[in-house]
Design a protein around this nucleic acid. Structure first.
Length: 344
RNA sequence: CCGCUCUUAGCUCAGUCUGGCAGAGCAGUCGACUGUAGAUCGACUUGCCCCCCGUUCAAAUCGGGGAGAGCGGACCA
């Protein structure tokens, strides 16, 4: 695979790269590395799936991938995760991420998993952190994390320290590339600004798009009907897609189309399969799409009706989620320990 | 250490002064209309009024005690 192909693989289905030139330079190195961090807070859902699926692209492009399960961050962010549940949730996140990577067609063992507390309590990390705390204004840290850290009327210090720690994580994990959702942009721009002052390289950034929810503009963990959960069975997936906002002919802010584009098609391509739509004869009979663009074109032209799209998308999404679901439910203690309030 | 404010439906909050059936908006549920959903109509649901004790025929409301959260003051030789 030549560098051009690797760059294409690295950047497909992404929203932004900072910068393309730097990415090209990094890919020329001996063993380029990338990292993504997840704070183990609420249960993971299909929105995470699209972002994690791309890790398979990274691995295929010859990039070493580290996944940071940022347990301390999960508590620093307004105590989203109680301190006592950090280990259990870390274990759950790692298991879920491994299962999603597996579905994406990559070997989960190729990924290095790191728990935040393994290195965030040691020097020189802590010394660098105190130095950063000394010369970062409150408003700068607040702005960097405004899309990530929970906003409230009574913000805690933890939310500010959070952004500085995430910046340091990039350096401490020795990652050339910082990967994450576009909501992480503010923090990584802070990292690019500050890390050189402390003797570290500034990271290349690759950002995944944030997908629309099924019933709202953005996916919200507080709106259970707006997203597919990793533990949803086929029937639950169907019900949620049936309820999804999906105006005829409109591709903008259409969660159903977005899932098809960023999750279903990449997975189908992996196996060389096409997207098949079963459609009653009275509406014109079955349809087959080889790529997303042709599907969207027919949806926009109203040749493809939302109900038929939903039926097909539900089945493919259920197929993708099923192995993850089985893996998570295989160990009854996994979810019960991480979310005792949801699983008695 | 001292003082003040807040706590009511899933969420945001009215109601407390002056005691009298527990309220609004949003969310949610169900119908109608659409070959989906939404929008739009129509209907419906939602409670430890933070806890305990007292006053009263009657307490979300008044009095006392407590818990949690927030704000301010003081201390700075």
């Amino acid at each position: 695979m030549d560098t051009a192909e690797r760059r294409e693989l690295m950047t497909r289905y992404t929203q932004e790269v900072v910068t393309d030139e730097e990415l090209a330079e990094v890919l020329e190195r001996e063993s380029p590395s990338a990292y993504i961090g997840y704070a183990p807070t609420g249960e993971m859902h299909i929105g995470h799936f699209t972002t994690i699926r791309k890790l398979a692209d990274f691995i295929r492009a010859g990039v070493d991938v580290t996944v940071l399960v940022a347990d301390l961050h999960a508590h620093l962010d307004d105590e989203k995760s109680p301190f006592d549940l950090l280990d259990a949730r870390t274990e759950y996140y790692q298991t879920a991420i491994e299962a999603m990577v597996d579905v994406a067609g990559a070997d989960p063992d190729a990924i290095e998993f790191v728990q935040g507390r393994e290195f965030e309590l040691d020097q020189p990390y802590t010394l660098d952190l105190y130095r950063m705390l000394a010369d970062t204004t409150i408003s700068r840290a607040q702005r960097a994390g405004s899309e990530v850290v929970r906003q409230s009327d009574n913000p805690k210090l933890g939310g500010l320290v959070y952004t500085l720690m995430q910046s340091l994580d990039v350096a401490a994990l020795d990652a050339d590339i910082a990967y994450g959702g576009i909501d992480q942009r503010g923090i990584y721009m802070l990292a690019r600004e500050m890390l050189p002052d402390y003797g570290y390289d500034k990271p290349v950034c690759v950002f995944a798009p944030l997908l629309s929810g099924l019933t709202e503009d953005k996916m919200s963990s507080s709106a259970p009907e707006s997203k597919i959960d990793l533990t949803d069975d086929r029937e639950a997936v169907r019900e949620k897609l049936q309820q999804a906002y999906c105006p005829m002919g409109e591709a903008e802010d259409n969660g159903v189309l977005e899932y098809v584009r960023y999750l279903v098609f990449p997975l189908l391509e992996e196996d060389g399969d096409s997207f098949a739509v079963e459609r009653p004869e009275k509406f014109g009979g079955d349809l087959v799409y080889e790529d997303y663009e042709s599907l969207e074109a027919e949806f926009v032209s109203e040749e493809l009706h939302p109900q038929d799209l939903k039926n097909a998308a539900a089945d493919y999404i259920a197929d993708a989620v099923a192995p993850v679901r089985e893996r998570l439910l295989d160990d009854p203690e996994l979810l019960a320990a991480a979310y005792p309030e949801n699983y008695d």
